[in-house]
Design a protein around this nucleic acid. Structure first.
Lengths: 338, 338
DNA sequence: CTGTTAGCGCCTTCAC
DNA sequence: GTGAAGGCGCTAACAG
C-alpha cells in the first residue's frame, strides 16, 4: 500500500502507464471503459499518487508555508485556523514553521521552505508585528504578509483597519452621550498608536466635536504593560472635569485602567466607561466584561489564504484591509446625568 | 534561483553530478579540493536541494503529519508548539492538518498525508479526546497518539498520568490539614473520571485515611459545564459537617464551585479550599487564582515528537506517561481552626 | 577518488 | 484512444 504506482495499475489493467495517468486525472481522451477499469483497480490496490513525483514534473508542490513567531499565541492560532480552512478546501498542504523570533530559526525556516519548494508563503505576525521577510522574498514565490509592520517590495499584505476600529469605538462612546472622552496610547507601537489616535480624532470630527488635547495621553510603558492603564487613568483623574470615558490603546491597557478605577472607588461603567482593542481572552472574563474592538482573526487567515491562492492562479491581488468589529459588553454605558 | 540543480553545479565545476551530490552531502570519498569548489559554487548559485527529488529515491520525505481537531484550542496549540520545537531541531517539516471533528475532513486529511508520504504522524487530541485513528493506521507509517482515548493496535501513545495528578492534588489538601475532602466528578468522561477518583482514593490511603462515600459526587452535566461545580457544591454543603475542601474534576467545575461558594457567603480559601485540573487560562485569572493540576502541554508535544523520531530511527518506543504538575495558587489553604 | 548508468513515480510531447 | 520515449532532480549501485 502506498507503494503502488501507476505502473502497477497499468500492468493489472493491461494498459500503459501514461494511460493510467490520464485516466486518473480524468483526461477526456480516454475511453470510458478503460477509465472505469483503471479507477476501480486504483481503488482496489489502494493507490495514492505521489505528490513528490508529481511536483517534480509539474513544478508545483501544492504546498504552502505558513510562518509565525509562535503558534501558542491565541491570535496566531486563530489566524492559522482560518488559513488552514481555506487551504484544505483546495487540497493544499500547510507546512507550519515557527520563527520564534530567533534569527537562527528564521534562517532554518527559509531553508526548510525553500527545500520543500512551497508554492507560496504566508507570514502572520500577531498584533505585535514585525518579522524577517527579506529572506523569504528571495524564494521567488508569492508572499502574503499579515499584520506585518515592515513592508517589502513584491509582497502583498493584509491588515486590519486600525483607524476605523478606533473611530467606531470612540463613536460608540460619543453616541452614548460622553463629551469628555480620553485616549491612552502606547509609545512603543508608534504606527498603530498614530492610527488609533487618528480614528479617535475622526470620530470627534464626524460629530463636529473637537478632541481636547489634555485628554490625549501618549501613555508610558511597553505594549503588554498593564500599569500603563493605571498611571494613565490616575493622570486623567486629576483633570477637572475628569473624562467620563476612556478609549485605551488595547485591552491590557483598559484592564489596567479598570483596576485603577476600582482602586479609586469609581464604578465601571456607571462612573467611567472603558473601551479596549484586541478582544484578548481576559476581556470577556474581567468584571465588568470589556467593550472592545476585535480583529476578526479567523477571517483574516482565510482572506490571506484566498489572496495567496489568487496569486498562484496568476490573478492580481492588491493589498487588503480588514474591518475590525466593535464588541459591546459591559464596560460602557451612558454617562451619569444622561 | 531555486531552479539550480546539481547538474548546473556539476557543469560549472567541471565534474559529474553524482560527484556534486556526494560533495554536498559531505561524502568522505570526495577530495577536499573538489568538495570545496562544489560547495562554493553551490552557495554562489544559490542552490537549494529539492526535497521532492531526494525523497523520491530515499523514500523518506523528512516530513511529519500533525493531526489535531482544532489549532485554536490553547491546549492543542501548546502541544503543537512542543512538537515543532523537536521536529525543527532535526530539520523535519511539519504538515499541519485539522480534522475539525468532521468525518469529511478526516478523510481528506488521511488522503493529504498519504499523498505527501509523511514519514510519520502525530495525532493530538485536546483534553476532550477521541479521534479517527483507524484510517491513519492504514498509512503504514509510525503513529503516535497523544491524549487519545481509543487505542489502536500498532500505535504508540502518550498520555498524562491522571491518577497521579489527582493523587498529588488531594495529597496537597490532606497535607494542609483537611480531613473532609470531597470530589466532584464528571459522568461523561468516564475514563478520566475513574482515574481521578482512583487518585483521590490513593491519596487518602497513603495517609491511612478512608475516603468517605458521601463526599464523592459523580457530578452531573457535560464536561464544559460550569454549573456542575455549583450544583455539586450545593449538594455537599447540605452534609454535616460539610467538607472543608473540594477536589474538582476540572477547572471549569472548580470555577463553578467557586462562584457558588461566593453565592453562599463562603470565603475561598478561608472557609473552603478548591482544586481543579487542567490549568486553563481562566484558572489564573479568577479571584482567588485557582490551585490546579497542569498538564505540561509543550513538553508533551516534545515527548511525542521524540517518540516518533525514535520510531523512525528504528528504535523501539513503548507508550509514555507524563507526570502532571500541581500548581499551587490562592484557592487552597489550611482549614479554619488549624 | 570520480564517472557511468539506472531508476524513484509521474507527466508530457509525439507518434500511431 | 493509446503507446513509446524522455526527463523532472536526485541518489545508489558499479566500474574504474
Amino acid at each position: 500500500m502506498a507503494r503502488v504506482s501507476i505502473k502497477d495499475i497499468a500492468q493489472a489493467a493491461g494498459v500503459s502507464h501514461p494511460t493510467v495517468s490520464r485516466a486518473l486525472r480524468g483526461d477526456p481522451r480516454i475511453s470510458l471503459e478503460t477509465a472505469e477499469r483503471v479507477l476501480a483497480l486504483a481503488h482496489e490496490l489502494g493507490y495514492s499518487p505521489s505528490a513528490a513525483a508529481r511536483s517534480l514534473v509539474t513544478r508545483r508542490t501544492h504546498t504552502i508555508g505558513v510562518v509565525v513567531t509562535s503558534i501558542a499565541d491565541p491570535f496566531v492560532s486563530d489566524v492559522v485556523d482560518g488559513i488552514e480552512a481555506t487551504l484544505a478546501e483546495q487540497d493544499y498542504a500547510l507546512i507550519l514553521a515557527l520563527s520564534r523570533s530567533e534569527p537562527e530559526r528564521e534562517l532554518a525556516v527559509v531553508r526548510l521552505l525553500s527545500e520543500h519548494r512551497v508554492d507560496g508563503i504566508i507570514v502572520a505576525a500577531s498584533r505585535v508585528g514585525a518579522l524577517h521577510d527579506q529572506d523569504l522574498a528571495r524564494l521567488q514565490v508569492p508572499l502574503v504578509l499579515l499584520n506585518n509592520q515592515a513592508e517589502t517590495a513584491g509582497t502583498h499584505s493584509l491588515e486590519v483597519d486600525d483607524v476605523l476600529g478606533a473611530r467606531v469605538a470612540v463613536a460608540h462612546l460619543l453616541q452614548l452621550g460622553h463629551r469628555r472622552v480620553a485616549y491612552i496610547g502606547c509609545p512603543d507601537r508608534p504606527r498603530s498608536h498614530a492610527r488609533r489616535l487618528e480614528g479617535y480624532r475622526q470620530a470627534h470630527l464626524d460629530r463636529r466635536l473637537h478632541p481636547q488635547p489634555e485628554l490625549i495621553l501618549e501613555g508610558r510603558g511597553a505594549e503588554g504593560d498593564r500599569s500603563r492603564g493605571a498611571t494613565g487613568l490616575t493622570e486623567l483623574l486629576s483633570l477637572s472635569p475628569p473624562p467620563t470615558a476612556v478609549f485605551c490603546y488595547n485591552d491590557i491597557t483598559a484592564i489596567g485602567a479598570l483596576e485603577a478605577a476600582r482602586h479609586y472607588g469609581l464604578r465601571v461603567p456607571k462612573d467611567l466607561s472603558l473601551v479596549g482593542v484586541d478582544d484578548v481572552r481576559e476581556a470577556s472574563l474581567v468584571t465588568p466584561a470589556l467593550t472592545t474592538v476585535r480583529q476578526p482573526r479567523r477571517e483574516m487567515g482565510q482572506r490571506a489564504a484566498d489572496m495567496l491562492l489568487a496569486l498562484l492562479r496568476g490573478e492580481a491581488a492588491g493589498d487588503a484591509v480588514i474591518a475590525p468589529v466593535l464588541v459591546i459588553r459591559e464596560s460602557t454605558a451612558a454617562p451619569i446625568g444622561q
